[in-house]
Nucleic acid binder design. Sequence first.
DNA 1: CGGTGCATTGATCAGAATCAATGATCGTGG
DNA 2: CCACGATCATTGATTCTGATCAATGCACCG
Lengths: 246, 246
Amino acid sequence: MSAIDMQQKPQKRPDMDDLNPCAACGIRDTAICSVLAPEELTKLEAITRHVDFSQGQTVIDEGEPADFLFNLTQGTMKLYKLLPDGRRQITGFLFEGDFLGIALNEQYAYSAEAIGDVGLCRIPRQNLESMLDEFPHLEKRLLGVVSNELAQAQDQMLLLGRKTAREKVVSFLLSLSRRAADREAEPSPVYLPMSRADIADYLGLTTETVSRTFTNLKRDGNIRLKTGGYVELPDIVALEEIADGA
Amino acid sequence: MSAIDMQQKPQKRPDMDDLNPCAACGIRDTAICSVLAPEELTKLEAITRHVDFSQGQTVIDEGEPADFLFNLTQGTMKLYKLLPDGRRQITGFLFEGDFLGIALNEQYAYSAEAIGDVGLCRIPRQNLESMLDEFPHLEKRLLGVVSNELAQAQDQMLLLGRKTAREKVVSFLLSLSRRAADREAEPSPVYLPMSRADIADYLGLTTETVSRTFTNLKRDGNIRLKTGGYVELPDIVALEEIADGA
DNA sequence: CGGTGCATTGATCAGAATCAATGATCGTGG
DNA sequence: CCACGATCATTGATTCTGATCAATGCACCG
């Protein structure tokens, strides 16, 4: 194995704790920083500041100047867009290591709010852009991140436009399960830090329909609702068939 | 004005027709090529081949190896994803100058089909990737293209998840109108080269509902249906209010 | 222990889907 | 050039999924 292995799983590096916060960062190996060499990391560190937000706080606001980009280091967030009368569409949930705030124009195209308390790495947009010119592999990585988000967005369009309530809820549980597995964790049980209202606004449903669908899935033995927002998925394969209407 | 003006509108360059197909290309100033200097364009040209497809032909197929990228030089296309039972979600329509085939993985994440006859510039993925390393501004441009698509996808999620049939149809007409204006054309009348079924699969509706909604909008004086798939938008501002449920 | 916010369950309603038929348009060949 | 068939769009009748309105239950926290 090479000294720098891009595929390795995240791990703590307690040896450098305070001297080099980035190197000690828990998500250092999954976040965009993972493509940076030590001296480049130092450079990134110089322009980065760590910020915390508590439950329910708005981190970015649709339409505001997009002066910062963020890396979520701890907690969960939701991204959403609003219609004038208050209808809301959640376009995504973010977990540790996810990137936030890429804006094509000068303004953010969506809002972002903390679910529970969160910690973020904040990078001024201007500075990052000059770093991009200097380190093309960072730009390549960014292109990968955005392409990945686009692919997810297309899956979500299929879900919103063509799936039933039951298929939507099951697809949602499976996507959380897969993302947990991508990070580190077990694919089941899945942890749901967000409210029923958030899930509804993500799936294009109402809270009542989400709740009823959970109840039905439980009755049919497809899921088990635990306390503290945990859901067990006893048969992933069976759920995958439900998810695309097979 | 500088000799190379990146903002200029597309125009024919009949003086170079056959010697240098790229320089003569009608979309040369809107497509990704617009950031390339003449000698870079020559390089791109060397790896590019022009291909034609006729009405209804599949240009790329979800799940197939993503060996090529394309630039649509003429005609209209649709991108879509399918569920196993045949339900279809159209994730976007492409017009002249649009880019096609960016794939994160080795496989295309969606299919693409010609609406009417089309012409495309075909670029082998491998070759383009090495060009990206050589010309960072091309990569930057690509990042812009993908970011733009992501922003559109998020708007579409809001539409699919939270808008009514009427709001969906009006939003669709307005987006076509805006894109026509971006290219060159008048914002009204809007040209609809795609079928009602395509519109339905784009908006998460059925053909019947799309048809009824057109009829209602016509009755209320919000649109005028012309022959040949043209739709007049007599009051764009009024339509914009309908589109967001104001 | 009580209160507040969130989740669940129930009854009814509405918007869009489905099922079905008719009408318009376009391409083709006589 | 017109008639025919095929395809696509429109319109109508009915159904059904998920929304809305309303009430109750549950869990967490001071």
